[in-house]
Design a protein around this nucleic acid. Structure first.
Lengths: 208, 208
DNA sequence: CGTACTTTTGAATCGCATCAAATCTGGTGG
DNA sequence: CCACCAGATTTGATGCGATTCAAAAGTACG
């Protein structure tokens, strides 16, 4: 948070056709505002530039069942690009800014522009890869395992650049920050991890 | 395992163009066999018809770091469809049967056939949705929460048809089967869940 | 009936969440 | 420059819930 009032801002991916980008308009949401509701026919594609949107349903007891938390940088409801109806509600849990594309134009750009379609597929496929890794990691029992897995998967050759706060890393790993601190300290004490500002590196006795 | 030797078999999705399917050949892998290695240029697209393939890298200590476990019914390495090189190794952890498509033909079918491209995007997007829900669920602390979330997300209106074994459900939820049995028993005892063969239903006092 | 498996229950242990508090840090204003 | 505040970071103590190991009961199948 070095910027005065605005939260993290994410730019649009670079592979969107300029003609499509030109059709995008801006939309702002206040905290708590609803973007769309389950069952509505999708007519737009959203990109979260800032803030956070939750996709959720209401369970049988009325409680919120969160499907997905989309922070800045995500496209929202890609599934709906080719779907007849939203499968859940979308609510801003923080003041948010969106880029909004007309769905029909987004679809026809994908149909008409093979290069864009290819990049879009690549984009989706990368997301799948990241999510599969994340799910694999979250199924691990211990914090230590998750840390190692994260560095191996998301880092380069056992080295992870991590500019943000460790609390955010803890959230990504699905553990409390206290548990993360302790596990990092023990990994370092065991000589398996090197900690430097903005960087975590696994120590391999024998590099494979 | 009711079938004598063959494990679960999954059919190809129905939306693959017949011309493309005609180009597919079969491949069998024995347990432990390697399908491809990291860095190799992808030349084929794989569909796992039976068995299970693990995508993994070797960590700095030589241990296997599993990115993804792909059971029957998954396409393998979709990310690589538009990538210059595999990002990990693929190893069969059980005897497996694959349908193998030439990558170039798969790609050009996607480029040339907008209907197929649309279905493929939908396929990827559904996968993303499922995985996001799964990750959200795996980040939950208690088994009880995970069960409820799973039924709400994957079931219909608080009711989940589950034909397989509960052990498989436990694996999906990322907990031991003992923990799952106990949590189900307590949910039922608390009057929040109804158990029937092949079916789990949440009891909502007030249906919302 | 016997085997192999799932389902279920029991008891002991361990790791993480939780609550609490101390330290450190960067930024603000007097 | 220092006092002060808000936040991240770190350490401590405690309890709970899941894992683990173990074993019994139920079930499908030959």
């Amino acid at each position: 948070m070095t910027n005065p009032p605005s939260p993290t801002t994410a730019p649009l991916p670079d592979f969107l056709p300029p003609a499509l980008c030109a059709l995008a308009r801006e939309q702002s949401l206040t905290r708590g505002e609803t973007l769309f509701r389950r069952g509505q026919r999708p007519t737009r594609v959203f990109f979260v530039a800032a803030g956070e949107i939750h996709l959720l349903r209401h369970g049988v007891h009325g409680q919120a069942v969160i499907f997905q938390r989309s922070a800045a940088g995500s496209f929202l409801a890609e599934p709906s690009i080719d779907s007849p109806g939203y499968h859940c509600d979308a609510v801003a849990v923080a003041a948010s800014r969106l880029r909004v594309f007309p769905l029909a134009d987004f679809r026809s750009a994908l149909d008409a522009d093979p290069a864009f379609a290819r990049r879009w597929r690549l984009f989706l496929a990368r997301e799948i890869r990241r999510l599969r890794g994340r799910a694999e990691r979250l199924a691990m029992r211990s914090v230590r395992e998750r840390i190692v897995h994260y560095i191996e998967c998301e880092g380069e050759d056992g080295m992870l650049s991590w500019s943000g706060e460790l609390k955010a890393l803890a959230a990504e790993l699905g553990v409390t920050h206290e548990a993360l601190y302790r596990a990092l300290a023990r990994l370092a004490a065991d000589g398996l991890l090197e900690r430097a500002p903005g960087c975590l590196r696994l120590i391999g006795s024998g590099r494979l």
